[in-house]
């Protein structure tokens, strides 16, 4: 029997680290450690470090150096967006496979450097786009591949959420996040398009953003991104942080495909029990169904075991980063950006 795969979670900065640790802890074929050396930089009250590791029941290492000495086979990077690049490069240099939280990077050169580092080192680079693994999207992709809606010509996608500030304030700090809602939410929908249309690239991007919602933060909170893909498919993505603070859930993601044989509507988080609570004074929104994070991590581990590229891979992540950066270029110039 082969020895268990050694996996390290690098940083608890992104709250998804918590669900990844839970998903990984549920597997018997791996050995897990976590390091969160930058937790001291977080504002008072934001969890991290040994305390959070203890709560999650995961072995904790104080520094990334200690992680490299431990010798991981693979890492899961959940640092702030702008800190992905150095960690990916270190992991690649150590020969460790990488699952990197989305967005892969906050600039195209950073994303290209990550792809290049991992390809040179011969390690897998996967981007954490879990919606691709949801029951809803898998059903949509199956239906689309079977021709249920024919040739798709137009797509409307919406990934809306609350201001993601509750747990982690860096989400609204452009120095650490790289931007606001355009950075945070465009890539989820862009990744689904990348999967549906086999990695077709964007040809042109136009975007509008605003700061009407939560004007107190220093980044854009509203955004509409218009994309034309190679081949002429027209896409609009609403990436706004437009759910009120008191909304009964974090947000959601919907995708509508209009084809010459029909129209498909997907709601990635529609499997839920609805209700209303007098004691909470709010709607109840109880999600159920399979956990896409678990399926995503299973794909990462399976790709390592099989010695094949994972999906979505670094090049897919790079394509989504290109769209985001083109959207910012468009907002800055007020013009359509050709890629």
């Amino acid at each position: 029997m082969r020895s268990p795969l050694k996996i390290a979670v690098l940083s608890f900065a992104h709250p998804h680290a918590l669900s990844y640790v839970r998903a990984l802890n549920g597997r018997r074929d791996i050995e897990l450690v976590a390091a969160d050396p930058d937790h001291g930089e977080r504002p008072v009250g934001e969890s991290g470090g040994t305390v959070l590791a203890a709560q999650l029941g995961v072995r904790y290492l104080e520094t990334y150096e200690a992680v490299w000495e431990w010798g991981p086979d693979a890492v899961v990077i959940c640092a702030e967006n702008v800190r992905h690049l150095p960690l990916v490069e270190q992991a690649a240099a150590q020969g460790a496979h990488v699952l990197c939280e989305k967005p892969l990077a906050t600039s195209v050169p950073d994303a290209e450097a990550m792809v290049s580092a991992c390809e040179s080192a011969g390690v897998n680079l996967m981007v954490a786009h879990p919606v691709r693994f949801s029951t809803a999207f898998k059903a949509l992709k199956r239906a689309y591949d079977a021709g249920a809606v024919g040739e798709v010509r137009a797509v409307v996608g919406a990934n809306n959420g609350k201001l993601p500030k509750g747990d982690r304030s860096w989400f609204v700090d452009p120095e650490l996040a790289g931007g606001g809602s355009i950075t945070d939410h465009t890539v989820h929908v862009a990744d689904l398009l990348d999967s549906l249309f086999d990695g077709v690239a964007a040809r042109s991007v136009y975007a509008l953003s605003n700061t009407v919602l939560h004007g107190e933060v220093g980044v854009e909170t509203g955004g509409l991104i218009s994309i034309e893909l190679d081949g002429g498919v027209v896409v609009t993505i609403d990436c706004s942080w437009s759910r009120p603070d008191s909304y009964p859930t974090w947000g959601g993601l919907t995708l509508q495909l209009t084809g010459d044989r029909g129209i498909a509507d997907m709601d990635a988080f529609n499997t839920r029990v609805d209700g209303h609570s007098q004691t909470r004074g709010n709607g109840l929104w109880l999600s159920y169904g399979t956990d896409p994070d678990t399926a995503m991590i299973a794909e990462f581990l399976a790709s390592i075991a099989a010695g094949r590229a994972p999906q979505p891979d670094g090049r897919s992540g790079l394509r989504t980063v290109r769209i985001v950066q083109a959207a910012y270029d468009s907002v800055r110039t007020g013009a359509t950006v050709l890629l």
């Binding site: 010509r153 137009a154 136009y206 509008l208 605003n210 009407v212 218009s226 896409v235 609009t236 209009t258």
Partner: peptide
């Protein structure tokens, strides 16, 4: 046929 239109309002809304 599908048309997608994006508007910038003077009010700041999109």
């Amino acid at each position: 046929v599908s048309a997608h239109v994006i508007l910038q309002h003077h009010s700041g809304a999109i």
